[in-house]
Write a protein that binds this DNA or RNA. Structure first.
Lengths: 130, 130
DNA sequence: CTGTATCCCACACGATACTG
DNA sequence: CAGTATCGTGTGGGATACAG
């Protein structure tokens, strides 16, 4: 549906989702907006290192994909608030297990030698065909 | 854990995971290996459009991240089999909800073109998660 | 405050050829 | 069969400046 930037051939749902969420800052934006509604400037402060151009671009894409809602208040000075749509909330929830995996397996898995994977610690067990 | 390609500052688990799984073909590789062990050539045939160079590179990265296991058989002609590690299986499972979201929200489901999507084979489920 | 408009560049990816 | 080696490229993203 929304604005698939890639040609049209998604092999499965995962890479379709990856396309939506693939920008460098998007999951962080999702995460921030998952907590509460945020203004543009708040988002920028929340994501150290992002530039306005890129933040605006990713916000646009997320909006085009129906993930975030942009509410513009015609005041002066201008105020714009971003929030998650229902679809965005669902996406955020679908991301949660991945976040848990990341915390458990790449952030800090507890082992001091975690930095370098030696060949004897990766278990070759095969994914079950079932 | 292994080989964080990004500087070191992951804000949360999700972007850490995104870094691991961020390559263009990685989720597809994960998906394929989730079904069964595959040889290099089988993988290449499975992923239409990937070149050997890129496939090899992404495989190397996944291996370095402890996601896939590479088993080389000293035969002639050479044979190499790739499989998921326990960590890879867990990652694949963590990806499942995202895959479901993608199927439901970006793969054209409500439109007349929905017939293009082969709904019988695109569920990436690895194990009993479903 | 909330953005565009340019310019620029690294790096992921692709094409092709070659090797153990 | 299972890869490397080389070279070329597109584009996502960064810096900076400007605008409503």
């Amino acid at each position: 549906m929304g604005t698939a930037r890639r040609p049209g051939a998604y092999v499965c749902g995962v890479d379709a989702a990856m396309d939506v969420v693939g920008g460098k800052w998007k999951v962080l934006i999702l995460w921030a907006l998952g907590e509460r509604v945020r203004r543009f400037g708040a988002l920028r402060r929340e994501l150290p290192g992002v530039t306005e151009k890129v933040l605006a671009a990713q916000l646009r894409e997320l909006e085009a994909d129906g993930i975030v809602h942009r509410e513009e208040y015609p005041e002066v000075p201008p105020r714009v608030e971003y929030s998650l749509t229902a679809r965005g909330v669902a996406l955020n929830e679908a991301l949660a297990p991945l976040g848990r995996w990341g915390r458990d397996h790449v952030l800090d898995d507890g082992s001091p030698a975690a930095g370098q994977v030696r060949e004897d610690d990766d278990v070759p067990l095969v994914a079950g065909t079932a």
